[in-house]
Design a protein around this nucleic acid. Structure first.
Lengths: 203, 203
DNA sequence: GGTAGGATACCTACTGGACGGTATGCGCCC
DNA sequence: GGGCGCATACCGTCCAGTAGGTATCCTACC
């Protein structure tokens, strides 16, 4: 187990390169050669750390779990926290190639249905917990189905992100997130709470 | 140009099989052999009608234009028409393999950015026109940005559809659409109009 | 503190197979 | 009988993965 520093570095280089290529091309169209070139690593090195293309993809998918783990709530208002999470996610998508690749692999359904469902479910659980807090704090409108709402929010963010990616290379992602919250919040929270919230990004 | 009936039949068979395979596997992972097997057609026949894999994919993408062309408004309320369009789209996704394949190819960004953007834009234009009618009919809340709203709606439907596909094979798509409208409508339409609308499916 | 020796980390050359595409030929309808 | 519609055999390429060798490091014993 005594890992060497160099080994960790190459492992990270491979992971990063793989995430980039998976993000740009998708799993099937991504080739090992391109990942190797971009990582500046030889085949032997790669296959020492990851035994197959699929295993490499699974490791990339794990990346979003790591990202969520580092995230911390930002506000005392659960709904505002949810909004801020959306923006934090959007910024990470623009800056963090590993998260990008992870999301693309999660979204395109291919060979690994199981990890994908787990990843989706993780997001939905996170959102549902925040909504539960919001209900406890009296922020939500009555009659909201938490599971349904978390499904809608997760799905909508997925779609917003995807269309922004296809149409504008994710450049207008922040604006689209603001548009989404503007439309979504009135159906989600109490009117008097709505006035307190900021659907745009906090600066 | 004097096409024979048999030729049209094989062309349709190829198109249908291709849409199915593209829907299930995505463009890159789809193989010509599987399309050939499923269409019950030989390579020569296929390549007589479509000169390359890419050309075949483009023909499949066209399918959604054809679907939209056959669609007709259902209600005198523009917003209700928009809702019904969503459900009609959802049902078509469950029943029409050609539309399914077309949507998958549009959503996964790969080699053909141009037709994809055109397809997206077509949906957004359609939604924006309906919203414009809704504004003219006094159904919309004041201050709604039509372009932003059409982007959000199109994106959200895309995401809802995608998550339903990954998580449940599109089986819960209708329910998720209802959840979406329930959450979205209060931010979109005037309160007194909201009471008249039916966010669930018309039967 | 020098060195044996095993484990860790990596390199290069290669392989089998599948894939998209083509060349050529043949029947059958107008 | 000519061209439309299709069948079959084939080709070059590229891909994921592997075999087997080599360098680099860690440990331990003197």
């Amino acid at each position: 187990m005594a890992r060497q520093a160099r080994a960790l570095a190459t492992r990270q280089a491979v992971l990063l390169a793989a995430a980039e290529v998976f993000d740009e091309r998708g799993y099937a169209a991504a080739t090992m050669s391109e990942i190797l070139d971009r990582a500046g690593v030889t085949k032997g090195a790669l296959y020492f750390h990851f035994h197959s293309k699929e295993e490499l993809a699974l490791a990339v998918i794990e990346g979003q779990g790591a990202w969520v783990a580092t995230w911390t709530p930002s506000s005392d208002s659960p709904v505002q926290t949810l909004i801020d999470l959306g923006y934090a996610f959007a910024h990470a998508l623009q800056d963090d190639p590993l998260l990008r690749g992870s999301i693309r692999l999660t979204i395109e359904h291919g060979s690994f249905t199981q990890p994908q469902i787990a990843a989706y479910q993780g997001w939905m659980d996170l959102v549902r917990d925040l909504l539960q807090n919001a209900r406890d704090a009296g922020e939500l409108r009555p009659g909201i189905d938490l599971v349904a709402a978390s499904g809608v929010i997760t799905g909508a963010v997925t779609g917003i992100q995807l269309s922004s990616q296809v149409l504008a290379g994710r450049r207008d992602l922040i604006r689209r997130m603001a548009d989404l919250w503007t439309l979504l919040l009135p159906g989600l929270v109490q009117p008097q709470v709505l006035a307190r919230l900021n659907p745009d990004e906090q600066t």
